[in-house]
């Protein structure tokens, strides 16, 4: 298996270095100066949903969380997430207490601990827009208030109003309707 990887690697390097066909060769590039991007790249940071590592992972585990593949995160971190959630929002420690999605502490943190963003390919993509839940993350989504509501807002978003909304509801610059969508820098 290792040999296969090495052979494959060499083929890929050769491809990047030498297989540039004439019609898609940008000016200043070509078979002699096409960049060699080969190598082994090792993970340092990762992110799925906003603020998950920041809020739910204990300080001494943040680096480990960033290099744990998502398929292993639930087993490794769900109990830590639940403990931290119950410390942050003590109502969750009460038996049967849920958030507005109907999720209790164990269920909510089992969703969050696998830090991937669920994205629909069939229509509206939003973190939460009042109707659609976790179908993507759009630039204008007020994800922090959504997360605060799910952490502090209780069963119907009415609990702890002072903690459930940071009252910053939009970006400081308008987004673009067309690619690349993000506003130009300050």
């Amino acid at each position: 298996m290792k040999t296969i990887k090495i052979i494959l690697g060499l083929t890929l390097i050769a491809g990047l270095l030498f297989n540039c066909s004439a019609d898609d060769t940008p000016k200043g590039e070509g078979i002699y100066n096409n960049p060699n991007l080969s190598g082994i790249y090792v993970q340092e940071d990762q992110m799925g949903r906003p603020a998950v590592n920041t809020v739910f992972v204990s300080s001494d585990s943040k680096d480990m969380f960033n290099v744990t593949v998502p398929s292993d995160q639930n087993a490794a971190f769900q109990s830590m997430f639940q403990a931290n959630l119950e410390a942050l929002s003590p109502a969750y420690a009460n038996n049967g207490d849920t958030n507005a999605l109907g999720l209790d502490a164990a269920t909510f943190t089992s969703v969050l601990a696998t830090d991937v963003l669920n994205v629909s390919l069939d229509g509206t993509t939003t973190f939460y827009d009042g109707t659609n839940v976790l179908t993507g993350r759009a630039l204008a989504d007020d994800v922090i208030t959504v997360e605060l509501l799910l952490i502090f807002g209780g069963e119907d978003f009415t609990e702890n109003p002072g903690l459930s909304n940071d009252n910053v509801d939009a970006n400081d610059k308008p987004f673009l309707t067309s690619f690349p969508y993000l506003a130009s820098p300050w």
Binding site: Y41, Q43, G48, P70, V116, L117, N118, S120
Partner: peptide, 11 residues
């Protein structure tokens, strides 16, 4: 359908 997606930085 639905995809699960995340981003990584690798050195």
């Amino acid at each position: 359908g639905t995809i699960n997606t995340w981003v990584e930085s690798k050195r």
